[in-house]
Write a protein that binds this DNA or RNA. Structure first.
Lengths: 233, 233
DNA sequence: GCTTGTTCTCAGCCAGTCTTCAGGCGTATG
DNA sequence: CATACGCCTGAAGACTGGCTGAGAACAAGC
């Protein structure tokens, strides 16, 4: 994935080895410079040593919880932004107010699209003083990551959350062929256990909503995948 | 086969001796430097010792499964890309997330063409940052491995998946005479039990689609095989 | 609670694709 | 020159991948 924030340094803190592997593999592949820690105390040390631009932090850790980790990091003067990973139910008071400091959180199970979008958004806010585009464009398609508004040829189009995530993923990877497996891996939650056909369904929905007019932008490559691109290239 | 990634070092991990033999022989012939392992634990050791550029890894192994192998390899710091071999049906839990780190998978039974194409694609993506050509050319033939687009003399030509694989195989082996048996072995799935005649059929289809104009590039050597080459040689 | 929108599954359908078969043609060989 | 063999190709039928409508399952808001 051609992430705009290429080379930003992330510290990923997560004790479940499977999820840690999932995260670090995909964030690295997305162009981030990733280091990892599997406990709260290791995280505090790593943050001091490596000075990451952003921390991805599971709130449930074996030793300290995520909020403790942040407090310790802040006490040593670091003002690193954080994206928290929390369980679905966590209506915890603690989660509240997280977004106040420019931080954000994502609930498990998340999709990688979701997480990387949040990371990008937080980095956008905190680095380079707010002055970066939250708007993706491709041909006459426009997608605003902040407001979740989508326009085709200037016309506003209403998308459901999944449709939006799928379109964003296609736009971030415009002109790149994406297999159904890749789309499933990135756009759907990591615990989704269904078949490929759901991708076909959502591609179908998207086409109906954003690709009814010429020129067609969403193309099927039979046996290979889908690609967003201008025809006749 | 004149693979672009000649000399890349592969580690092939597969417990079925027949398939292992098939794979290592043909990948060696394709120009890769191949070492092998027949169990998960042997694979981990071999990866540490030999530092391959890519691992071809059966997910069904007698001792550890493929995912365990990867995790152990990653824990010892290796960031080697992987192409997994999986059973067709395996919509299995585990298969999800495989494409996240730039890795890929091929379902059994595959064709060798399929597998080497995936290996090349993964190496292309992971080594030397993405911008290497996915385009094969021979004379006025162009074939894009990523988008599956084919041009003859600048004209776009539509090919079916099998036609595409056959042409790619011919192009990768331009100027080399290929017997029908060879073509069958490389382009068709290894469990294909059919007649040579299907190769003739597909050569015929290909000629109709990409070889209608002068100079003719696909030549028959009666009793021997086929060859892609410029005439008057 | 109910309503509304959304997610996901399922099954039917269609176009395109794969595979087989058989007849015809050309070339090599006696 | 006759024959056999290899190759080419049209036709036909089976099969498959992808698209979509219908609806069940679920969640969110009222």
């Amino acid at each position: 994935m051609a992430a705009p924030q290429t080379e930003a340094r992330l510290l990923v803190v997560e004790d479940d080895p499977n999820i840690l592997e999932l995260l670090s593999a995909s964030l690295r592949f997305a162009g981030f410079d990733v280091s990892t820690a599997t406990s709260g105390s290791a995280a505090v040390t790593a943050a001091k040593d490596r000075r990451p631009d952003l921390v991805v932090l599971d709130v449930m850790l074996p030793d300290l919880d995520g909020f403790e980790v942040i407090r310790l990091m802040r006490e040593s003067g670091t003002r690193t932004p954080v994206v928290f990973l929390t369980a679905r139910d966590a209506t915890d008071d603690k989660i509240r107010g997280l977004t106040l400091g420019g931080d954000d959180y994502v609930t498990k199970p998340f999709s990688l699209e979701e997480l990387t979008a949040r990371i990008r958004a937080v980095l956008r806010r905190t680095t380079s003083g707010d002055r970066s585009p939250s708007r993706l464009t491709f041909a006459d398609l426009e997608l605003d990551e902040e407001t979740h508004e989508v326009y085709r040829a200037g016309q506003r189009v209403q998308l459901s959350p999944t449709e939006f995530k799928l379109l964003r993923y296609l736009m971030l990877n415009a002109n790149r062929v994406l297999s159904k497996a890749q789309i499933l891996d990135h756009v759907w939650n990591y615990d989704f256990r269904g078949d490929d056909n759901i991708v076909e369904s959502y591609i179908s929905y998207l086409r109906r909503k954003v690709d009814t007019q010429q020129p067609r932008l969403i193309h099927t490559l039979r046996g290979v995948g889908y690609v967003l691109r201008k025809p006749a290239t």
